[in-house]
């Protein structure tokens, strides 16, 4: 058999039309999937970033004790006012030894122990450069409650 007769007899037209259609459909689907991949990655990254931010905030919230949780002894509370004045005089950020030295010179009682308590209740916090600062936010929170 030759010519069109052979094509018809072996269902050549059907095979060709379906074949090329499947090739097109496959590559159209693949191209569609490929065009979505980077958008999905963007979306995932955005979601992941915001999830990380929320998680970080939650961790921070958990880490920072609420003002009511802060059991600051009465004597430390009193001393904190004196230490705050000293810190204002030294200027922020300040080195811890300087605060201890000055508090000793000013005659404040048990300066090491008091500074330790202030560090524990985070009224004095490190600035991550080797110096310390007075935690104004915590103080404000405490005074508002």
């Amino acid at each position: 058999m030759f010519g069109f007769e052979a094509i018809i007899a072996h269902d050549g037209l059907g095979i060709s039309v379906i074949g090329i259609s499947i090739v097109f459909v496959s590559l159209i689907l693949l191209s569609f999937a490929v065009s979505r991949i980077h958008k999905l990655i963007e979306l995932w990254d955005k979601k992941y970033t915001s999830y990380q931010r929320v998680k970080k905030t939650q961790q921070k919230d958990q880490k920072t004790p609420s003002v009511s949780d802060l059991a600051i002894p009465q004597d430390v509370q009193r001393a904190s006012r004196q230490f705050k004045l000293l810190i204002e005089w030294i200027g922020e950020p300040f080195p811890l030894p300087k605060l201890l030295d000055l508090s000793g010179k000013c005659g404040l009682s048990r300066p090491h122990s008091t500074v330790n308590e202030l560090l524990k209740c985070e009224l004095i916090i490190p600035d991550e450069n080797g110096y310390y600062v007075w935690n104004k936010q915590l103080e404000e929170k405490r005074s508002s409650t």
């Binding site: 072996h10 191209s31 065009s35």
Partner: peptide, 26 residues
């Protein structure tokens, strides 16, 4: 530029046209 993938599909028309041609010559 995934739209260019369609060109890769279009070129496969040659395969199926030749398939018909080969059938036609026996």
């Amino acid at each position: 530029r995934p739209v260019l993938m369609l060109l890769g599909a279009a070129a496969q028309i040659g395969i199926f046209t030749t398939f018909l041609g080969a059938l036609a010559i026996g």
